[in-house]
Design a binder for these strands. Structure first.
Lengths: 221, 221
DNA sequence: CAGATCGGTGCAGCGACTGCAAAAATGCAA
DNA sequence: TTGCATTTTTGCAGTCGCTGCACCGATCTG
């Protein structure tokens, strides 16, 4: 979510001098918070996968994670938010990653690279596989987490605005950000639906190449 | 909504031999249903605009439309669905409109024409202006009606699949449908946000031209 | 160890949304 | 007009997502 309504126990200040690493850094509180969040997410995704999201209540999830139902909403603003594949760090770093790409690189190429990284990071998360299964079997849920796509889009737009010397309200910046995020969505979905074992990379390459050619119906498949 | 969960009093069978016109055609039932639906929508949009969507309950809306609260959900599946700018007819006809475009026309051009018609129809609706105001002041609500964009996208995809001799699962068909819907969204939003009195048509032309050029950062603005 | 801070919890409540079955409105034909 | 079938409206009761608030206990800081 863009700006969460809660005090959002997790997000206030990043740990001081935190190595961008992964180990159990930070104080005891930090670690416990991470543990709680992860427990909730894993319990939720597992239950979603087993019984279908509609049949799982927040109460069930919290029972599975061994916390109070009230606590769930200290971490997620909605039941379905546990399915969001990228975390705040990924989203925030997106705008700077756009800036760090080689200056001569074309915008489309920048987007492909940066979004490729983002989804790659997501795929390394502990719940990616289950999240993907759930979303594939219940495509309606994608609508519920569309907000997370928009925050990524916004971060991307920030990066492009800075990179191109324009504003985030600029039509070209908006169009670029919005269509490439959409392209990411299409790529992931096509990849998930495919029986073949083509890599996601393959789909990303195809879709972005199509975009680059102005969506003309030409040669390939 | 794609398939509404309800018996959906409105949608079962279109009036037999209904002229695609607009007058109060059909039997008494048909007319009353249309009236009820419109009363609900107008009351809702007006209240949303006056007090903000968060401060308006379904009960309020139904009081304004003089029907039982239960009835609201016979017509809309969620409170926010009253903000959807296109109706079922528009969505359904989209796929055939795609097929009816001149055969030599390029896909992008087809999309621009068909979506331009769709949004044009929407703008002629009695609640368009207020809907636009509400959505402009409360962009979060767009997420709530994203499903309606997806149904339009699906209809578009059907048309392109037929037109191009491919399937709706084809990556190119998906990409084409998804990105052009996104482009429509960007155009409308930019148009709404602009102070100038450029026509929506102007924004549609610019964004689709950008798309056609492979989203390259060139000359213009 | 004392006080400040912060996450976890219970509670009480609002409001969206649903299924069900009775009631009212409408359509149709005798 | 009357009777019957069909469709829409309504009330009711209930589930569940989600929130504000106030309290408690764990953690941190000095």
């Amino acid at each position: 979510m863009a700006r969460s309504a809660h005090t959002a126990p997790g997000t206030a200040g990043t740990t001081p001098a935190s190595d961008a690493g992964e180990a159990g850094s930070g104080g005891l509180r930090e670690r416990k918070k991470r543990a709680t969040r992860q427990a909730l997410q894993q319990a939720a995704v597992r239950l979603f996968r087993e019984h279908g999201p509609g049949a799982v209540t927040v109460e069930d999830i919290c029972a599975g994670a061994d916390v109070s139902p009230r606590t769930f909403f200290n971490y997620f603003t909605s039941k379905e938010e546990v399915l969001v594949p990228w975390d705040r760090d990924t989203i925030d770093s997106t705008s700077t990653r756009v800036l760090e790409r080689p200056p001569e690189e074309e915008p489309l190429e920048v987007a492909r690279a940066v979004l490729g990284e983002a989804i790659g990071t997501a795929m390394n998360g502990p719940t990616w596989r289950d999240q993907a299964v759930v979303l594939r079997h219940h495509p309606e849920l994608i609508e519920k987490i569309v907000t997370s796509f928009r925050t990524l889009e916004a971060s991307l737009a920030e990066g492009f605005a800075a990179r191109l010397g324009r504003t985030t309200e600029d039509v070209y910046v908006r169009l670029l950000s919005a269509t490439t995020i959409t392209t990411l969505r299409v790529s992931v979905q096509s990849w998930q639906d495919s029986e073949s074992d083509e890599s996601l990379r393959h789909y990303l390459d195809e879709t972005f190449e199509r975009l680059r050619q102005g969506l003309r119906p030409n040669e390939l498949g």
